[in-house]
Simulated scan of single mutants.
Amino acid sequence: MRSRYSAFSVGDVAYLLRSWHPTTRPPRIEPDEGLRWVRLEVLETTGGSPFHTEGTVRFRAHYLSRGTEGHLDEHSRFVRHEGTWSYLGAL
């Protein structure tokens, strides 16, 4: 989760697509150039240890959009795919 937030922050579209599960991955992502991610709060997690095959993360990501503060709340699901964690989607 934190690595995906960092990728959104720096616009690393290739990493975002690689870390998205192939069954839910969009064909492309076009970052909003007027959006700047400024802070991540992880609010709750389940699973996600080396012994788990799935987990969830509830988070709040804070941003500035053309000078206006905002935040995105999401409860995300991750699954282990081919040995790495992949973002499956929001719950």
Rank of each mutant, 00 (worst) to 15 (best):
D32Y: 00
A61H: 09
A61K: 06
L40P: 03
D32E: 12
E33T: 09
V57C: 11
V38H: 07
R39T: 00
T53K: 13
V38N: 08
G55C: 07
V42K: 01
E30L: 12
R39D: 08
H21D: 09
E44H: 13
H62V: 02
V57T: 07
R58D: 05
T46M: 02
P22D: 05
P26R: 09
W20R: 06
S49Y: 10
V57M: 04
Y63M: 03
S65E: 15
L64K: 14
H62F: 15
T56Q: 10
T23M: 12
F59S: 15
E54A: 11
S49C: 09
L40W: 03
R58W: 13
E44D: 14
L43K: 02
T24H: 06
F59C: 11
W20Y: 12
T53F: 09
S65W: 14
L43H: 01
F59Y: 13
P22C: 02
R58L: 06
Y63F: 15
L40F: 05
S49D: 14
P50D: 12
G48N: 04
E44S: 07
R60L: 07
F51H: 14
W20D: 06
R39Y: 01
V42D: 00
L43T: 05
P22T: 03
H62M: 04
T24L: 05
R39I: 00
L40H: 04
P50K: 11
D32H: 04
E30V: 15
T23Y: 09
S65L: 14
Y63A: 04
L40E: 04
T24S: 15
P31A: 03
G48R: 03
F51S: 15
T53S: 14
T53N: 14
E44M: 00
I29N: 00
G48P: 04
V42R: 01
T45C: 01
G34Y: 00
D32L: 10
I29A: 03
A61R: 05
L40S: 01
P26E: 08
T45E: 09
G47P: 08
P27C: 03
R36S: 12
E33K: 14
E41V: 10
H52S: 15
R58I: 00
H62Q: 10
E41H: 13
R36G: 00
T45G: 00
T23D: 15
L64V: 11
P27M: 03
R25F: 06
R39A: 12
E41I: 05
E30S: 13
E44W: 00
